[in-house]
Amino acid sequence: MIIEGKIFRYGDDVNTDVIFPGKYTYEPLTPEQMAEHALEDLDPDFVKKVEKGDVIVAGKNFGCGSSREQAAVAIRAAGCSAIIAPSFARIFYRNCLNCGLFALTNDQIQSKIKTGDKVKIDIDRGLIEVESGVFEFPSPSEDVVGILSAGGLIPFTRKKLEEKRGI
């Protein structure tokens, strides 16, 4: 699988409150409606500029804070296909996998790129290509690939449950 688009560059410790403000978390929104608020308190221009295939490159501990799944869902529904960071907050990382958003670990690329740069990610080969070079990321484990390729945890589990019942 290939992801191709442009980069949005952000800093360290981007938390779920600036990704998806708490005041919206208990409103029953569709993923498309969530997308309208993606990164609202960090970069109001993000939703205006993001297109399918775009990639966020951020600093350490991306997604720290609340367990709200909408933080990952909003970013994905806005069109962003992957996030690259040296480390992710653990619940956010799980939420990314569970909604089919690639969370890739790399700590070299941050100083070599800027917002607007072009990027190409080869998921199967674990490679990130930008103008200034090629960077690697550890390929996701088998369990994780299963969830991602099913389109997230809910479709993955539904399929498993159906197989169990012999449907």
């Binding site: 367990s67 799944e69 619940i91 799980r94 939420n95 569970n98 997230g152 945890l153 589990t157 449950l161």
Partner: peptide, 14 residues
Amino acid sequence: AGIGRSEAAVIWAT
């Protein structure tokens, strides 16, 4: 430990 909403739904079911 904290988990996501989809994960809670999966535990409810399985």
